[in-house]
């Protein structure tokens, strides 16, 4: 048994092979009863999964139109990061939510996503615009033992991981503008923000990536992933899972010198 019945069912339905599954086949594969499978399918459909029941066989070619935590989890290959993950429809700032959870004792790995933030923060206390449904705005809770002096590198690791994940989707490589923004040419694509406890018991690391749209800001050049993507629109759920995976591999195998070298190789001029 891996994951919940819902997730197991989704994994089977997402498989691109064959023409879908009968209830009996799903039951055999998941080890659940047909009634349980039926209930799972019903609740998945209620949650917006576009299930297709043609000819007594169930299949699923897409995912819910809004950011769905199970859809991210379906792609997620991490061990800790993004487990659990939570999606808010709207919240003040995902960093604030993560901080609250950290203060309450939540474990490392929690990731909090929002479709939109009402008071997202950027660098130097600037606002971060996050229009609904257009980007990936999320925060990962870390409980790193790294010395505080290394925190800036933690943020650079976030920028680098995001750039590396985006390489799989974009026709141009996003570059890191000092200290830790991602740019394509003259336009900003993504930003990152770290906040930590005064006693270093936790760090909340915020990711902000414009995916489907670039907010119009007077005096600022902003771009989005789709504008440079090979196959737009890029699926946010997959991208999020990729970023978390890349970041986790940098984070777990922490190597400051290698990180520095890779960041330098991506330096925006």
């Amino acid at each position: 048994m891996t994951g919940s019945l819902r997730l197991q069912t989704l994994r089977l339905l997402a498989s691109p092979f064959g023409k879908g599954w009968t209830h009996a086949e799903l039951a055999t594969r998941t080890g659940a009863s047909e009634t349980e499978v039926q209930a799972a399918l019903k609740s998945l459909r209620q949650d917006g999964w576009p299930l297709d029941f043609t000819g007594g066989r169930v299949s699923c070619a897409g995912e819910p139109p809004w950011l769905n935590p199970e859809a991210i989890e379906l792609h997620l290959q991490t061990r800790r990061l993004g487990r659990p993950l939570v999606v808010y429809h709207e919240t003040g700032s995902t960093n604030d939510r993560a901080r609250q959870a950290a203060q309450g004792g939540a474990a490392e790995g929690l990731a909090i996503f929002a479709e939109t933030q009402t008071s997202g923060r950027g660098q130097h206390g600037r606002r971060w615009l996050s229009p609904p449904g257009t980007g990936l705005w999320f925060t990962v809770l870390l409980r790193s033992a790294l010395p505080v002096d290394d925190y800036p590198q933690l943020v650079q690791a976030a920028a680098l991981s995001t750039a590396e994940a985006l390489d799989g989707y974009m026709t141009v490589p996003p570059l890191i503008k000092w200290p830790n923004d991602l740019y394509v040419g003259p336009a900003k694509l993504a930003g990152f923000l770290l906040e930590s406890a005064s006693d270093a018991a936790w760090q909340v690391l915020g990711f902000g990536i414009n995916v489907h749209a670039a907010p119009d800001l007077p005096g600022a050049q902003i771009t989005c992933v789709d504008r440079h993507a090979s196959y737009p629109p890029v699926r946010r759920t997959r991208l999020a899972a990729d970023i978390l995976y890349r970041f986790e591999s940098w984070y777990r195998g922490w190597d400051a010198r290698r990180l520095e070298a890779c960041v330098r190789a991506r330096q925006w001029q």
Partner: peptide, 16 residues
């Protein structure tokens, strides 16, 4: 008016 009082989770999404 602006105080968040609870969350309602619907369709796997948290609504403040």
């Amino acid at each position: 008016e602006e105080t968040v009082v609870c969350i309602i989770e619907a369709m796997k999404v948290m609504n403040e």
